[in-house]
Design a protein around this nucleic acid. Structure first.
Lengths: 201, 201
DNA sequence: CCGCAAGTATACCGATCGCTTTACTTTGCT
DNA sequence: AGCAAAGTAAAGCGATCGGTATACTTGCGG
């Protein structure tokens, strides 16, 4: 016996898809607990990944934050997937605008929009994250304006921008108040605005 | 010469009003950079206060956070002083509601509402901060509803809650977008809602 | 005028931060 | 079968975190 002397190793952890598990852990922990309070150790524990492997996939925590934001942005199962209703071709423009507000409440559990939250935490540090969130919200506003135009709104620019404020307000106030009620208020007001802008010529 | 051997001490720092200086530093740093990224060292440096003195005034950083939030809430020079227009007796109810949105833009430089931002950072940790922000936003909503009633709104509950969402939305979107534009949109929409709810019987 | 509260500097505590390193093992592909 | 890619464990890096301790000095009120 003692073929190789070093019998120590028993490396059974998560297995092959390390990067994916890391990103999933990031979505779970960053969105729920925040970015600053989530350390690398908690991340690697959750992802079932060694520290080494982590840094082979992401050069730094900040790089993971950027990847996390992009994932959140595009993940069809992620916490902001509700925004994708604006792209659905089986719905009329008016219905898409309404659906954005109808769908957002159940999705957003309690903690508002993860992208906005990241922008709050990013502040001075993490300029890449700040820029990414800024871009996302700009694009969302543009999509809202376009959809408002499709819906035949009299002033699509105004309606789109107002709906953007409203959407962000529902998310943010639900965080501050620890309640989902603001979504109802936003939904009601959105419906009114849309009707008013597209209604009786 | 050598009267007392110990010639070391040259303790000239900020002087007597330590607590006040600490709170001022907290308002400046927490609001601008965030809570988690602001360490005790930066705080004491800015406040011109020794570590010891700091902990004689506040038992922990979390205690300072609570004191900071209360200060922000009530400070007539602070970043949320704009909300106090709702209390002004020299203005009519309608004017007060409009003034809230008119005044908020210049006050809020770029970083939204410090209370909401604190709620985002507080998340799981800092339950006291979470509760304080929740209370503040509830009270703000109540004041909005009362003022809406005074202004003769047909459904003051609805109008007040919608204005609360709008106000939070302007603050939050200005953070996400790094721009003051959302305040304009919120102001326009608020004016419309108020006119509509109080206007032509 | 003097005592004492309020302030000062500074070194240090254990813990955790983000990150690196060394040495090793498993897995999938050809 | 064999080899590179991808994974593992674990020790440890310097820095910083929130917080404590020791020892000293000042300014104001009775």
């Amino acid at each position: 016996m003692a073929t190789t002397e070093t019998t120590a190793g028993t490396p059974r952890r998560g297995g092959r898809g390390a990067r994916e598990r890391i990103l999933r852990a990031a979505v779970e922990l960053f969105a729920r607990d925040g970015i600053h309070v989530t350390g690398i150790a908690k991340l690697t524990d959750t992802a079932q990944v060694s520290t080494r492997t982590f840094y082979q996939h992401f050069p730094s925590k900040e790089a993971l934050v950027s990847a996390y934001l992009q994932r959140v942005e595009s993940d069809p199962e992620g916490p902001v997937h509700g925004e994708s209703v604006l792209e659905r071709s089986d719905l009329g423009a008016r219905e898409r605008l309404l659906a954005l507000f109808a769908d957002s409440a159940p999705t957003q559990v309690v903690r508002g929009c993860p992208l906005h939250n990241a922008a709050v935490e990013a502040a001075g540090t993490m300029p890449e994250a700040t820029a990414l969130v800024e871009r996302h919200k700009k694009e969302l506003t543009e999509r809202l304006i376009k959809t408002a135009a499709e819906a035949g709104a009299r002033e699509p620019e105004t309606l789109g921008r107002r709906l953007a404020v409203l959407f962000e307000g529902a998310n943010a106030l639900s965080t501050s108040l620890n309640s989902a009620l603001p979504y109802q208020d936003a939904r009601g007001l959105a419906a009114m605005l849309i009707d008013q802008a597209t209604g009786a010529s």
